[in-house]
């Protein structure tokens, strides 16, 4: 699955970049993220739980490795995530460009999805992933605004993991929606 798009942040690149290095911020911006730890310089491990309505999904573990990092321009993430309902593997590339006084983020993720989600969730993967990506980015943008206004949610450790989290969330959502359909329709 390819997820690509652009998103405008109303802040300079440096601010956005810094934000993208902060795992705690990301954890807040992304529904279901329970934990996000930096295990090596450019390697992060996390765990997430996502629930929708009355159904909660099982835990997913995720590993993200960062490469090709050029501050404050771009980085690439290699993503490995797996849980009882499936797995995802792939890469995501994030670029930040100056645009009209703000920042334009370009992202492109190429993810292989397997397991139960791949088999039964296809019809939802695309739209759910789009929605979730947008929601996550909007949350980030709010945080950008907060920071510009001098309010910070704090947290110190650094993590650039944006896209992968989103993609994992949307996988989970897809599953969950599916379970709902299967069981309750």
């Amino acid at each position: 699955m390819i997820i690509e798009g652009t998103f405008p942040f109303a802040a300079p690149r440096e601010v956005v970049w810094e934000l993208l290095q902060d795992p705690a911020v990301l954890a807040q911006a992304i529904p279901g993220a329970k934990r996000l730890d930096r295990v090596e310089d450019d390697r992060f491990e996390g765990e997430m739980h996502v629930s929708v309505g009355p159904v909660s999904a099982a835990a997913f573990s995720v590993t993200v490795t960062i490469s090709d990092k050029v501050s404050p321009e771009r980085f690439t993430m290699t993503i490995e995530g797996k849980g009882p309902l499936g797995f995802t593997r792939g890469t995501a590339r994030v670029e930040l460009h100056d645009r009209d006084g703000g920042t334009l983020m370009k992202y492109r993720a190429d993810l292989k999805i397997g397991g139960k989600i791949a088999g039964v969730g296809q019809r939802m993967l695309d739209s759910v992933s789009r929605t979730m990506t947008r929601q996550g980015l909007e949350a980030l943008n709010r945080e950008v605004q907060n920071r510009l206004a001098g309010i910070s949610v704090g947290a110190t450790s650094r993590s650039p993991a944006v896209r992968w989290k989103l993609s994992m969330v949307l996988l989970l959502l897809a599953i969950v929606v599916l379970i709902l359909i299967l069981r309750l329709a």
């Binding site: 999805i113 397991g115 791949a118 088999g119 039964v120 296809q122």
Partner: peptide, 14 residues
């Protein structure tokens, strides 16, 4: 099947 061998329509919905 996708190019990783994943079956993409494993239900009677798809």
């Amino acid at each position: 099947y996708d190019d990783t061998g994943q079956l993409l329509n494993a239900s009677f919905m798809d």
